[in-house]
């Protein structure tokens, strides 16, 4: 027997079976759907939902009160208006404060306990400002408020 007629018969049977299967399954699906149908209920215009959101970074800020220790005597000599000895880096000790809590990872920033020392700089001689608020009126030679 030739191959093509056999294959043709197989395909024909398969196609007819597929047709029957598809239509049958569809009808069955419709019957099942029909059983579970519920009548539509009127819903309110507005609804309420719960929203769970992790607190943001800014809200997590935890500050530990800074401990301000008494200032050590600055090793400075006063000579006119010049300050000469800056504090060396070795003397700097750090205490930590928590600036941000990100769950597992806590970010900490060092806080120096040493007094803030201004860098060496040149000061200018201080002179009192002239009193501009009161002056003589050169024309009338009277004291006036400006």
């Amino acid at each position: 027997m030739e191959l093509i007629p056999i294959l043709s018969t197989i395909i024909l049977v398969a196609t007819i079976s597929t047709f029957i299967l598809a239509v049958g399954a569809y009808i069955l699906y419709k019957i099942r759907e029909g059983k579970v149908r519920v009548s539509p209920e009127r819903k309110p215009e507005y609804l309420e939902a719960e929203y769970f959101v992790p607190r943001e970074k800014k809200e997590h800020k935890v500050f530990i009160e800074e401990v301000i220790e008494p200032k050590p005597k600055a090793n400075i000599t006063v000579e006119g208006f010049e300050q000469v000895k800056p504090v060396s880096e070795k003397q700097t000790e750090f205490k930590y404060r928590v600036v941000d809590d990100l769950g597992d990872k806590t970010v900490v920033k060092p806080v120096s306990t040493n007094p803030v020392v201004m860098p060496k700089m040149k000061y200018e001689k201080y002179s009192l400002p002239t009193d501009d608020t009161v002056s003589k009126d050169s024309f009338h030679e009277e004291i006036k408020w400006r």
């Binding site: 309110p44 215009e45 507005y46 609804l47 309420e48 959101v53 607190r55 997590h60 769950g103």
Partner: peptide
Amino acid sequence: MNRSQSIKELKIRFRNE
């Protein structure tokens, strides 16, 4: 850290589409 402290619960009101 306490879970209730780390999670914020809010209410949302929205239009029912």
